[in-house]
């Protein structure tokens, strides 16, 4: 169990060059948590991965690669729960069709499958300005 209360709120241009920046924030949170008894290196990789996947979906699919748009990410830890929200400002994409495990050789669907596998809850819903991907992991 961790006793940290952390809130990170960041907006970046809708460009894949920022995936590394956001992924590293996730890794650094995992390395910084106090009283975390799990596999810290695995948590670091997993947070890097779900942030990278969520943000890449927002950039390439929801925001359709439009460099004029931006992606808004919130990461917070409250009472042993880690929450990630990825806001896009586009037309969204169909998450539901990718929840089931894809065939190993399928071209698409691995990202959503990985997020569902790693996190305890994953939802995607419409907002006034676009959509938000919400994920929760129990620490």
């Amino acid at each position: 169990m961790t006793t940290d209360r952390i809130a990170v709120d960041i907006k970046v241009p809708n460009q894949t060059r920022y995936l590394c920046l956001i992924g590293h924030i996730g890794e650094n949170i995992a390395h910084t948590l106090r009283n975390y008894s799990g596999d810290r290196e695995k948590l670091a990789y997993d947070l890097n991965l779900v942030l990278t996947e969520g943000m890449a979906n927002a950039i390439l699919h929801a925001n359709q690669g439009d460099p004029a748009k931006e992606v808004h990410i919130e990461i917070s830890i409250v009472k042993n729960n880690l929450f990630i929200k990825v806001f896009d400002f586009g037309q969204g994409f169909d998450v539901e069709q990718y929840i089931k495990p894809s065939h190993p050789l399928d071209d698409h669907g691995r990202g959503v499958y990985l997020m569902h596998t790693i996190m305890d809850e994953v939802t995607y819903r419409q907002t006034k300005t676009g959509h938000v991907l919400e994920m929760r992991k129990i620490l």
């Binding site: 990278t52 996947e53 990202g111």
Partner: peptide
């Protein structure tokens, strides 16, 4: 050190 679904996808594409 890190690979995501796009990286896996590129390798799968190459394999196929």
């Amino acid at each position: 050190r890190f690979v995501d679904s796009s990286g896996l996808g590129a390798l799968v594409s190459g394999f196929k």
